[in-house]
Simulated assay, not measured.
Amino acid sequence: MNILLARSAGFCFGVKRATRMAFEAAESHDGICSLGPIIHSPQLVKKLEEKGVVVVDRVNEIPEGAVIIRSHGVTSGELKEINDRHLEVVDATCPFVKSAQDHAALLSREGYAVVLVGEREHPEVQGILSYAESGDVFVVGAAAEAEAISRRKRLGLIAQTTQSFETFRQVAAICLDKCQELRIFNTICDATSVRQDEAQEIAHRSDLVLVIGGFNSANTSRLAQICADIQPRTQHIETAEQLRKEWFEGVETVGITAGASTPRWLIDEVILGVQKISN
């Protein structure tokens, strides 16, 4: 079988930075916590746990000492709690996420109702929302949801960094009819757009597409959906152990891509697994 691997498959800049900071912090501290998983890769989080990085869900669960802020960032309230306790902070928040937080705060201060294109329950979205201090915020996950936005004089539009640009564009078009003034900040990370474009190209050229990454990873799940819309024979997996021989029946070309939180060693293991099945 021919294997097509997406050029940008795997870690993006923000994730590389966050994981490097987390492993360095583990080496330099005798025990340290991460407020939420550092990235959405259970396998990498396990490796960090083996290095002494304990994942906690709430600030009050952090013992005295140091805390790592995950790549998705934290809410403004959580950050205040951390600062009030005078904890040492290793801030691994992705700079693109931080930019979205700053734009939410700016729009809110300047009197715009904020429209955030994203998944309401995702930790990155929860963090961004917390910086829109006016509280006049709409979260929409799809263009159809934007139709329910009530008319406002001024709307400000931003996005979760891993959102689809096409969805963002569609929501922007709807918002134009909902207000007198629309201010847009495209806060979608460039790495997201590149990975989505590559996924579409590979899906068109493949008989089977494997998308590697955490099942709890929003950007990986979105890649899987993009591929499935083009090539129904798309499988979202986390590890090589999840490969099934029956998927490869009649397959000549296998396309492989991976989410921005997927370590390279997991990708290499899947490629090896595909080669074994092929042989």
Results as ranks from 00 to 15, higher is better:
158 I>H: 04
139 V>I: 08
197 D>C: 00
140 V>C: 08
131 Y>V: 05
183 R>F: 11
175 C>F: 02
194 V>D: 13
104 A>G: 05
161 T>W: 01
89 V>D: 13
113 A>Q: 06
117 V>F: 07
168 F>E: 05
117 V>A: 03
175 C>L: 11
150 S>H: 15
83 N>K: 15
188 I>R: 02
156 G>C: 09
164 S>N: 12
137 V>F: 11
173 A>Y: 10
102 D>M: 11
117 V>H: 04
91 D>K: 02
87 L>R: 04
161 T>D: 03
106 L>R: 11
164 S>W: 09
120 R>K: 13
118 G>V: 02
183 R>N: 04
176 L>S: 13
79 L>P: 04
151 R>T: 13
156 G>A: 10
156 G>T: 07
197 D>Y: 08
105 A>M: 11
201 E>H: 06
102 D>Y: 05
191 A>G: 07
188 I>H: 03
164 S>Q: 10
184 I>M: 00
173 A>E: 15
180 Q>W: 11
135 G>C: 06
117 V>N: 03
127 G>K: 01
80 K>C: 00
164 S>M: 10
106 L>I: 06
77 G>T: 14
172 A>D: 05
198 E>G: 09
184 I>W: 08
160 Q>V: 04
136 D>I: 13
131 Y>M: 00
183 R>D: 08
178 K>W: 11
127 G>Y: 05
94 C>K: 10
90 V>Y: 13
173 A>F: 12
96 F>N: 05
131 Y>A: 06
87 L>S: 08
102 D>C: 00
90 V>N: 05
103 H>K: 15
88 E>N: 10
96 F>I: 12
103 H>C: 09
199 A>S: 14
164 S>L: 10
171 V>L: 03
132 A>I: 04
178 K>G: 06
185 F>G: 02
170 Q>H: 12
95 P>E: 07
165 F>K: 10
99 S>F: 14
185 F>Y: 15
105 A>Q: 10
181 E>S: 12
121 E>W: 09
110 E>W: 06
157 L>E: 05
154 R>C: 04
117 V>M: 02
140 V>R: 01
177 D>H: 15
162 T>Y: 09
93 T>C: 09
97 V>R: 01
113 A>V: 02
168 F>T: 05
141 G>M: 07
171 V>H: 00
79 L>T: 11
163 Q>Y: 07
97 V>F: 00
84 D>R: 14
130 S>H: 06
120 R>D: 08
102 D>A: 13
189 C>E: 13
140 V>F: 08
124 E>P: 08
176 L>Q: 14
124 E>V: 03
157 L>C: 01
157 L>R: 02
